Simulated scan of single mutants.
Amino acid sequence: MRGAYMDYYLKIFLVICAVHQITSGVIKSTTDAAYKKYLSLRSLPFEDCASSTSSLYQVSYLDIESCTTLPCSMARNATIKVTVRFDDNGNGVSFLKHEVRWVFNYIKTQAAITPDPCDGDHGCIMSATDGKAYWANVFVNNTLPVMKGSMLWESKDANDQNLICFQVPVVITV
């Protein structure tokens, strides 16, 4: 008789544990989804060009120093910090080589980025609650035309494989 009660209570305990496991997973995924939505609402709007370049990771958040509206106003001879969050699908990204170009009327001009590459020596890649984040500084060359265009940012791994791609409208000022 006593064994029957123990089996009964053991089954109840296992059901409670299973329900707890299921609900905690739902709560965690709901919390993660809410946090990602919060980040996207705080992010500067950008065009994700991942599909056109077969990039592996999608950007979830973009911050360009002193840019709150589009197009981003960027003064010549300025150095501007860019911060990006992305989901690396648990791959532990630790190296990013940047290819950043200014695009004006379909003409592309290479931008100067520091640090490049972004690796363990520079502390520019950080773990975030929802993947990875990195920062880099882009230099706005004084020879760029004073006009509207865009900044096209691609990040590649050590094997030159596209990982991240985004584009942002900019206006170069004096």
Rank of each mutant, 00 (worst) to 15 (best):
Gly120Tyr: 10
Val19Ser: 07
Lys148Ile: 08
Thr83Met: 06
Ser29Val: 10
Ile16His: 05
Lys81Ala: 12
Thr23Gly: 04
Val103Thr: 10
Leu39Gln: 03
Glu47Val: 15
Cys118Met: 07
Ser155Arg: 03
Gly120Ile: 09
Leu163Met: 12
Asp121Glu: 10
Glu99Ser: 15
Arg2Met: 04
Leu70Thr: 09
Ser127Gly: 14
His20Glu: 09
Tyr5Ser: 14
Ile64Trp: 03
Met74Trp: 04
Leu56Ser: 06
Asp116Ala: 04
Phe95Trp: 11
Ala33Ile: 04
Asp63Tyr: 03
Val171Lys: 13
Thr69Ile: 10
Leu96Cys: 01
Ala112Met: 07
Asp130Ser: 09
Asn142Pro: 12
Glu154Pro: 01
Ile113Met: 09
Val168Gly: 00
Ile12Cys: 12
Asn105Trp: 02
Asn162Thr: 15
Lys156Pro: 00
Thr69Gly: 07
Asp87Ala: 05
Asp157Phe: 05
Met6Phe: 15
Val174Thr: 14
Ile64Tyr: 01
Leu152Tyr: 09
Ser24His: 00
Arg2Gln: 13
Thr69His: 08
Asp88Asn: 08
Gly123Val: 08
Ala4Glu: 14
Leu56Arg: 14
Val168Tyr: 01
Asn77Phe: 05
Gln167Glu: 13
Ile80Gln: 00
Glu99Val: 02
Leu10Thr: 15
Pro169Arg: 00
Glu99Leu: 04
Pro45Glu: 09
Lys11Thr: 15
Asp48Glu: 05
Thr30Pro: 03
Thr173His: 03
Pro117Asn: 12
Tyr61Arg: 07
Lys97Gly: 06
Asp160Thr: 14
Cys118Asp: 08
Leu96Ile: 05
Thr53Asp: 13
Tyr8Ala: 07
Ser51Thr: 14
Ala4Ser: 15
Lys11Trp: 06
Val59Gly: 01
Ser52Thr: 15
Pro71His: 03
Leu14Asp: 08
Ala112Gly: 06
Tyr5Asn: 13
Val170Lys: 01
